[in-house]
Simulated assay, not measured.
Amino acid sequence: MDRIHLWVLLVLGLILLVFSLRKPPIKDVILVFLLKAYFSTFFGVIVVN
């Protein structure tokens, strides 16, 4: 029974790995990066003060 669980988890992990390696469009990546940098700078200044 344990071997079945291990095999199922291995297959599930490999399938999820394939989906996680797909690249989103570069425009979306840059937009998310810049928004994250803006908000972290904004909240960082508030926290320091």
Rank of each mutant, 00 (worst) to 15 (best):
V8R: 09
L9P: 00
F39C: 01
D28G: 08
A37H: 01
M1R: 03
L17A: 15
V29L: 10
L34T: 14
R22G: 14
V18T: 08
V32Y: 04
F42H: 10
V18Y: 11
G13R: 02
L12M: 08
V32S: 12
V11Q: 02
D28C: 02
D2K: 12
L31A: 14
K23S: 04
L10W: 13
L14F: 08
M1L: 08
V48R: 12
V48H: 13
I15V: 10
I30H: 01
I4V: 11
L34Y: 08
R22N: 12
F33E: 00
L31T: 13
V29D: 03
I15G: 00
I30T: 04
N49S: 11
A37V: 07
S20Q: 14
D28V: 06
V32I: 15
L31N: 11
L21F: 06
S40H: 05
K27W: 07
K27S: 07
S20D: 12
D2L: 12
V8S: 04
V48S: 15
G13C: 02
P24K: 04
K23F: 02
Y38N: 10
V18K: 04
V45C: 09
P25D: 13
R3W: 03
Y38K: 05
D2N: 11
H5V: 15
V29T: 01
L21Q: 06
G13P: 02
T41R: 10
V45L: 13
I26V: 00
F42I: 09
D2S: 10
I4G: 01
I26K: 04
I4D: 03
L10K: 15
P25M: 06
V47I: 10
V11W: 01
H5M: 13
L35F: 05
F42E: 03
L34Q: 07
V47N: 11
I4C: 06
S20A: 15
K23Q: 08
F42T: 02
F39P: 04
L35D: 04
V48N: 14
V18L: 12
V18D: 07
L21V: 08
L9D: 14
P24W: 00
L10S: 14
G13K: 00
G44V: 02
L10I: 08
F33Q: 00
S40Q: 06
I26E: 06
F19S: 12
T41V: 13
L21W: 04
V8D: 05
L31D: 12
N49Y: 11
F33V: 05
K36E: 08
S40L: 07
S20M: 12
L16Y: 03
W7R: 10
F42Q: 05
I46A: 03
